[in-house]
Design a protein around this nucleic acid. Structure first.
Lengths: 159, 159
DNA sequence: CGTAAACGTGTTATGTTATAACATGATAAT
DNA sequence: ATTATCATGTTATAACATAACACGTTTACG
């Protein structure tokens, strides 16, 4: 069987169950709202804007307001289940929350596609550079602004 | 003589004159508004929010509105004279516009201090990683979220 | 159990950041 | 001189995010 665009249903179940476990281990609660936000992001498998999430949430939670979504997102980011993408003001699920923490996020500034990478050695080098400048790296998640394959072609076509 | 906090007056003049030259070479115009925005950022020598800039601009240009500032900032970023800092929604002058292009910006997420670094070899490595993920780096300016020395201490104190 | 503390959510309002759209004025190219 | 291009003025609104306080639910612990 060929993988579908948004991965199979059981992958989603596994990801949600991983999220549950991680929260439980830490004494945190993956409440229905938080779970739903995470589920949307996992299913879409792309970055989504906060107000777009709000619209989607309202399908199941008609009373939802901006804080509903932002609180859930803040929690999920805190727990490493979601990435916040500053370059495009959007949010994307971590597709592999049980694995190595991601230290590089490649973000297509055109369409919001995201690649999650791990490269501790590279991060160590970045840390050194930062330290030489008298700073200390505060988040081990560095955003790289890029174009995905599709968007690059589109750019090229548009001369 | 010891350097003052915001560098000497003549350094400012030199920076502005560099900016003029670069624009002239490219057939672009460093208009009074653009020049003023750049001057504020060079003088402050720190990152500044757009609406803070707007207030400062209004001292000399009482009719200024948000587009006044955003247009100037967009121009200055385009010309490499100003950096846009996604992590804190702020803007900082490039203190060395005539030199090597900066490929790493270290940003204190607490106070907005910025260090501008150049490390083409490191950037080449980042480019490779990005290419492996099927993307291509679209801006050769990567933001690293960090804490400056002062803010780190402050964090430590506040245990 | 009971009850207090901590946590999560609802709700309203507002703060902050940024752009659209169209009019007007300045500059440059020929 | 005239037209095209660029820059700015002006008004309105879009997009993103948080403050503040009320209320309900869960947890800790006597």
């Amino acid at each position: 069987m060929v993988a579908t665009h948004s991965t199979s249903t059981s992958a989603l179940a596994a990801q949600l169950s991983t999220a549950e476990s991680l929260c439980a281990q830490r004494g945190k609660r993956l409440t229905p709202i938080r779970r739903k936000v995470l589920e949307i992001l996992l299913t879409e498998h792309r970055s989504v804007k906060a107000y777009e999430l709000l619209d989607l949430i309202r399908d199941v939670q008609p009373g939802a307001a901006p804080p509903t979504v932002y609180r859930a997102l803040d929690f999920l980011v805190e727990e490493g289940l979601v990435h916040r993408l500053d370059a495009i003001n959007a949010w994307a699920a971590c597709m592999d929350a049980a694995g190595e923490p991601h230290d590089l996020l490649v973000v297509c500034t055109q369409c919001g596609a995201v690649a999650e990478l791990s490269d501790p050695a590279l991060t160590r080098i970045l840390e050194e550079r930062v330290a030489e400048a008298g700073f200390s790296l505060s988040e081990h998640e560095t955003e790289l602004r890029a174009l995905c394959g599709k968007c690059r072609k589109r750019e090229t076509h548009a001369h």
